[in-house]
């Protein structure tokens, strides 16, 4: 049996076809695992069902096939154990930044005293650098600040796992860079397990321990898993100076540009959906078999067997 923290087993999403038409399968045969403390990014083109997978993990949506087990329990609905940062921040506009966080904290610990809740909220707002703006309404905050409140809200309930749905998609490059760096710091400090959707290849390389590549939909699958072999203390300034940075980046871009489409047209020989190939661009030329994954820089061995 698997000892992974999270296990997604054979997830599929089908929509029944209208009047005699065949069913529309968005994705199928999606298997993956996430270890505790791991930061996982998923990359793929629009329409491959990334957000649906995230919603299934969150318990907000149900898959038509397969199941998700987190920490030994099957995911059957939304839970405070999984915090979600939504694509469009989803702050309640009638509440101030602090009240938004407070709403979540009070849901998590209804019995805490007002003082404890206050302190807790302010600590997390401080963590995302929003001290001084806690009493502002979302409409008075910039896009980046709103997304920070969303992140503070998700972190503040101290979930076992954090799910981020393209959280920085709507932000300008500069703001995005700053928040990414803060996210790295917070995750390093809290050893948070994170699953994140992104379209940004550099963002994935900066943040993720492993990057799951999805082929194009319909019938999307996880085509392969890229293990990030760059040292974990990488920053935005030093990222592009890392020796294997371009190898990884080129591999990802290459996948998005051409291989994702080719993959969905014809499954490569020897492809096993249960154990998608794990590749470490720059370290080896051939995709490594799933079993022998152990990178020199990483203490954690990604266990793909279950």
């Amino acid at each position: 049996m698997s000892t992974s923290f999270l296990l997604a087993d054979g997830l599929a999403k089908k929509y029944p076809g209208a009047r005699g038409k065949p069913d529309l399968t968005v994705f199928e045969d999606v298997h993956f695992t996430i270890e505790k403390g791991e930061f996982v990014c998923i990359i793929g083109h629009s329409g491959c069902g990334k957000t649906t997978i995230l919603n299934v993990l969150a318990g907000l949506d149900t898959a038509s096939g397969g199941n998700v087990v987190m920490d030994g329990r099957e995911v059957s609905g939304p839970s405070l154990e999984r915090g979600v940062v939504f694509q469009g921040h989803a702050l309640m506009p009638w509440l101030s930044a602090k009240k938004n966080v407070e709403f979540a904290v009070r849901s998590r610990w209804p019995d805490k005293s007002k003082k404890e809740i206050d302190e807790h909220c302010l600590r997390y707002l401080d963590l995302v650098g929003l001290t001084g703006s806690e009493h502002k309404k979302p409409s008075e905050l910039s896009g980046g600040m709103k997304q920070r409140v969303g992140i503070a809200r998700a972190f503040a309930i101290e979930p076992k796992m954090l799910l981020l749905d393209e959280p920085f998609g709507a932000l300008d490059a500069l703001t995005r860079g700053n928040i990414q760096e803060e996210l790295v710091k917070i995750c390093a400090a809290t050893h948070q397990t994170v699953f994140m959707i992104t379209h940004d290849v550099d963002e994935a390389i900066l943040l993720a321990d492993k990057i799951m590549l999805m082929s194009n939909g319909p019938h999307a699958r996880i085509a392969e898993i890229v293990a990030n072999t760059l040292p974990r203390d990488r920053t935005r300034e030093t990222l592009h100076k890392e020796p294997r940075y371009y190898a990884i980046r080129n591999h990802l871009v290459d996948f998005l540009v051409s291989r994702s489409k080719r993959f969905s047209e014809e499954l490569p020989e020897g492809y096993d959906a249960k154990h998608p190939p794990v590749v470490m661009p720059g370290l080896e030329t051939q995709p490594a078999p799933a079993l022998s994954l152990a990178s020199p820089e990483k203490a954690v061995v990604i266990n793909l067997r279950h």
Partner: peptide
């Protein structure tokens, strides 16, 4: 907003 409420149980 409803999804936020759902994830917060």
């Amino acid at each position: 907003w409803l999804n936020v409420a759902r994830t917060l149980e």
